[in-house]
Structure formats: structure tokens, C-alpha cells
């Protein structure tokens, strides 16, 4: 299997799907001539031409709404946000239009739309540029929210998202673009709504997503050396939530730690914790524990930002509490 970066895997998915279906087009700021602010769309303009790889002005409301309209008319737009932080400019379009038009029209229109771009903190770009918005969008009925953590899933999930007949928020992680791993060639479709068990273990379960999976993975390795075996689950899709995979693991390990980069109040982990206590109350040997970002805006200073993020130190300390 070839080894690709997360960025290259996304690029491959876009290229393959554009090749496969000429209704698919890519639109966003700097996606064409500049090859993408993070180079995800590298070479696509050359391959598919300016009709299908479209550089837009800085008008997120406009081009998001345009994408939704084009989807209503039967195209399959992929709209790139330079980062999801900028999707906030288009929040109304995403929530009131992309997510509601099908329902409001009594099922007459479908919105086969992918909204995608980078997200996440840790790069010292300050409060306006560091959002982790999966919980905001997961709160909206009819939106699918995907957050891949590994290159193979980045490719497989993006291909599935583009083929979905529904609006998908595909939230990449800026810190992972350079991450390398094996990626299946050609037709590789990862099912939406299925979590993946990354490491098997019996002492406790960690449920995580996106960049936090890698933080958790480091902690799992540290603990392994101490003879503690954690089962790490990468949700991959936030919504729909794969509760089955979580339940199977928690009923085996009886302890759950959630690690997410969302701010704590109504982060997706709060929903997981609710469902676990409701369905698996008798299986639990300890309260569900959770490590999130701190409930403060993102500071620029590097030490402060590391303190705000769900860092390995806080994860380890919480594991101690969970296992005590």
C-alpha cells in the first residue's frame, strides 16, 4: 500500500471523485492557482480546468449559499473553507439552508454538498483562527459531521462524503496535513457513521476524534509501558454517532475517558457521556471522565495555548483519576 500524507490522501479523493463524476466541482478561496492554502487541492486546476476548480473571492456567505443552490439544482459541490473558523461567516447558509431545505420542502430537494477545510488549535494563530467546530454543526439536525484522524480515513471518508446525497461538514485538522500513513489505492470508501478501534485493550476505553486521537495514542503508548492497556476508539464520524462501537468497548472495559478538542460545554463528548450513562449505567465502574479544551478563548501565547488544549499531561492525570 502506498504511504501518503493526510493532505495527499484528501487530494487523491478529490481527484478520483472529480474524475468519476463531472457534476463534482471544487470552489473556495485560493483552491486553484494557489493550489490551496494548505495545498490540499494541488494540481487539480491543471487537471480539471477552471470550470471545475474555481477560485472565489473572500465571500464565504456567497459561495456557500451558491454551493447549496447548485446542489439543489443537481450538482455535487465541494466547498472549501480555508479554515472552518471562516465558515462562521456562512453559518446562516449552512444551518438555515443546507440543513433545512430538504425538510422544509417536504423532501423535494436534496443537498449533495460537501463543506470542507482545516480546523483546530495548536498553531498559535489566536482566538479567531483556532476553532474546533464539530460540536456546533453536530447540533444541527440533518448535518453529517466527519473528522478524519488518519490518511486512509481522510481519503475513504471524503470519497463517501462526496457521494452522499446529503450535506456533509468534512472537518480536517490542520496539524495532521503532514501526517503520513498507508492509504489504499483507488476505490476506497470508508463508511460514514462507523468508528474504528485503533488499539485494543481491556483496562479502560478512550473515545476521541481528529487531532485528539493522536494525543490519546501517545498516552496509550506511555501507559502500555506501565502495563495498562487502553482501548482507543477513533469516532471518525461525529454525527451520526456510532454508539454501538462505544458500547461494545465500554461494556468490556467498564471505564470511559473522552478526549476532545471542543470547548467543554456541549462538546460532542457531553453527548457521548449522556448516552453511556443512560444505556450502560450498570456496566460503569467509575464516572465517565472527560478531557476537553479549557472553557476560554484560544490564547496566542504558546504555553497558554498548550494549557488550553487537551494536552497529554491532562489526559494522563485524568486517566489516573479514572483508574483510581
Amino acid at each position: 500500500m502506498p504511504t501518503l500524507t493526510y493532505r495527499e490522501a484528501l487530494n487523491e479523493a478529490l481527484a478520483e471523485e472529480m474524475e468519476r463524476d463531472d457534476k463534482v466541482f471544487l470552489m473556495g478561496e485560493e483552491v486553484g492557482e494557489y493550489n490551496g492554502a494548505y495545498k490540499v487541492s494541488k494540481g487539480l486546476l491543471e487537471k480539471f480546468g477552471p470550470k471545475r476548480v474555481i477560485d472565489s473571492p473572500i465571500s464565504e456567505t456567497g459561495f456557500t449559499g451558491l454551493g447549496i443552490g447548485a446542489a439543489m439544482y443537481g450538482l455535487r459541490p465541494v466547498i472549501e473553507y480555508m479554515t472552518w473558523s471562516f465558515s462562521l461567516v456562512a453559518y446562516d447558509q449552512i444551518i438555515n439552508n443546507a440543513a433545512q431545505v430538504r425538510y422544509m420542502s417536504g423532501g423535494q430537494f436534496s443537498i449533495p454538498l460537501v463543506l470542507r477545510g482545516s480546523s483546530g488549535g495548536g498553531l498559535q494563530v489566536g482566538a479567531t483562527h483556532s476553532h474546533t467546530p464539530e460540536n456546533w454543526y453536530a447540533n444541527v439536525p440533518a448535518l453529517t459531521v466527519i473528522t478524519p484522524a488518519f490518511p486512509a480515513d481522510a481519503k475513504g471518508l471524503l470519497k463517501s462524503a462526496i457521494r452522499s446525497n446529503n450535506p456533509v461538514c468534512f472537518i480536517e485538522n490542520e496539524k495532521l496535513y503532514g501526517y503520513k500513513d498507508e492509504v489504499p489505492e483507488g476505490e476506497h470508501l470508508t463508511p460514514i457513521g462507523k468508528a474504528r478501534v485503533v488499539t485494543e485493550g481491556s483496562d479502560f476505553t478512550i473515545v476521541s476524534n481528529s487531532g485528539s486521537v493522536h494525543r490519546a495514542l501517545n498516552v496509550v503508548k506511555t501507559l502500555e509501558a506501565q502495563g495498562i492497556r487502553a482501548e482507543l476508539i477513533d469516532l471518525r464520524t461525529i454525527k451520526p454517532l456510532d454508539f454501538e462501537t462505544i458500547a461494545a468497548s465500554v461494556s468490556k472495559t467498564n471505564r470511559l475517558l473522552i478526549v476532545e478538542e471542543n470547548k467543554p460545554f456541549a462538546g460532542w463528548g457531553a453527548q457521548v457521556a449522556y448516552e453511556v450513562q443512560k444505556e450502560l449505567f450498570d456496566d460503569l465502574d467509575a464516572p465517565v471522565h472527560r478531557v476537553t479544551s479549557l472553557d476560554v478563548p484560544q490564547p496566542y501565547n504558546g504555553r497558554l495555548e498548550q494549557a488550553v488544549l487537551p494536552n497529554e499531561e491532562r489526559i494522563l492525570a485524568t486517566v489516573k483519576e479514572l483508574l483510581a
Binding site: 490564547p299 496566542y300 497558554l304
Partner: peptide, 27 residues
């Protein structure tokens, strides 16, 4: 000027009637 919290894009100085540095284009 923003206590290390804003960074390059988010300078502020109320005393100088400088209402900032803003990171979101047009915001």
C-alpha cells in the same frame, strides 16, 4: 499590547483609541 493573548493579528490599545487588529476578513 494584548497581554500575549492576541498575537500579530490581534493588536489592541484602548488608550490610543486603537480598536484592533481583527483576524476575520471584513469582520
Amino acid at each position: 499590547c494584548s497581554r500575549g493573548k492576541g498575537g500579530s493579528m490581534h493588536f489592541f490599545d484602548a488608550k490610543k483609541h486603537f480598536y484592533g487588529g481583527h483576524g476575520i476578513v471584513g469582520g
